[in-house]
Design a protein around this nucleic acid. Structure first.
Lengths: 227, 227
DNA sequence: TGCATCGATGCGCGCCGTGCATCTTTTATA
DNA sequence: TATAAAAGATGCACGGCGCGCATCGATGCA
């Protein structure tokens, strides 16, 4: 949320961010080159020209360092969702936010995609991806609650009986759409595996639309017709 | 899927399963008593009276050993879903399967709940839980595809253009309902935290219904009414 | 009964993650 | 500017982790 852009940042803070970025990028680069399993923390620290001990001041494992590349894009998605006008429904707003983030050809965005590709290639990182998503869920749930003007923590504590459905909605909706996005992204990454540069976002956009449409339609289906 | 019940099982296989179960139960018991962080693999092996080295022949970490208690319940849920008649819609069938599994007062089921409680208490295990869910997704997606009579791998490979929506559905639906179940279970475990024995499944049943109903309704909502 | 197979075990090694003490850089203050 | 305080970076050491390897013993089979 308030992650960026205090105008006054000392040299100390800048160096910390630089160190963190160097470690994050080194972890991603080496893991893409040699595979996550074949990279040691010491190699990552050397590549970034940082002491081994210092690595652990920033990340508790190499997996966490790689996953850090995901985190940025995740927060960006939440921010874009919050920027959508309230005239849009929740699912409409989410769709637009996804497309905006996808079409950013940022450096951070590129690393985000690369990290996702890496995760597809190495099952060790799947839990990390899902952990990032879990954190995203909480943030998006709050954003959704605000979007529909449903205060997250109602001051009146007496109506605890039947508001359970309403209290559930933001969590459920956030979890569902992020899960849908994950499924679509996985399919898209699978289809575009191998090709490096172009990254056809139009196809991804169509698939996001398909998934959100199905969610909005209720995604129930009848069983096989008898006989 | 085919995990159980060849009638002829030699002593060797039985001992293997016993060893695995002993390690799994020891890991869960010690973790519940002392917290996951404060338990070493050596303690688990000692508790189960198994050599330390042998532990790693079965699990690659204590987290994996604890998560094994989840896996059983997960597979049971898929099996119950497959057993539902095709006259039920996908979401109806899933709801019934969940309730059946929840009301089993099995020993395995009890361990399943205890493992979930343990996960809530120790963030180290969240990735493991999500990893189990990821595996569940794949299995449930296949079950859903069969339930709606949608062959997972159609022999005709020519219609690759517009069947993307249909191919997406099982994955999307499986991911969505399992995510919903996870959200509801987390809320329920939070509410019932502290009380050991009763485990009010009726409340859980209501919340599962609420979540599935919202999914079936499309879970879209309008933004805050302007001005 | 003898042999082949396979799991359990002990040993050793390299990596992981962290507490602690120290050094260096940055920031605040006189 | 000079100097002290604060905070991050680094080196060191230690215990746990995860696994390859060789060996032993139990099991299954002829």
């Amino acid at each position: 949320m308030d992650g960026d852009a205090e105008p006054v940042i000392g040299r100390r803070e800048r160096k910390k961010q630089a160190t963190r970025a160097a470690l994050r990028e080194a972890a991603l680069r080496l893991s893409l080159r040699h595979g996550v399993e074949n990279v040691t923390v010491e190699q990552i620290a050397d590549e970034a020209d940082i002491a081994l001990r210092t690595f652990f001041n920033y990340f508790s494992s190499k997996e966490e360092a790689v996953a850090a590349s995901l985190s940025a894009g995740s927060q960006e998605l939440i921010a874009q969702f919050r920027a959508r006008p309230r005239t849009e429904t929740v699912l409409q707003a989410f769709r637009e936010a996804v497309l905006i983030v996808m079409n950013q050809s940022d450096v951070a965005s590129r690393d985000h995609i690369r990290a996702l590709q890496l995760i597809r290639a190495s099952p060790t990182l799947v839990p990390q991806q899902l952990a990032v998503l879990a954190a995203q869920e909480k943030a998006l749930a709050e954003a959704i609650a605000e979007h529909i003007d449903h205060p997250a923590t109602p001051p009146a504590a007496d109506r605890t009986t039947e508001r359970s459905g309403d209290a559930l909605y933001p969590l459920l909706c956030a979890a569902a759409v992020l899960t849908a996005l994950r499924v679509v992204m996985n399919q898209w990454l699978q289809q575009t595996a191998g090709s490096d540069r172009p990254l056809d976002t139009t196809l991804l956009g169509r698939q996001v639309d398909t998934a959100i449409t199905q969610l909005a339609a209720g995604l129930d289906r009848a069983g096989r017709a008898p006989g």
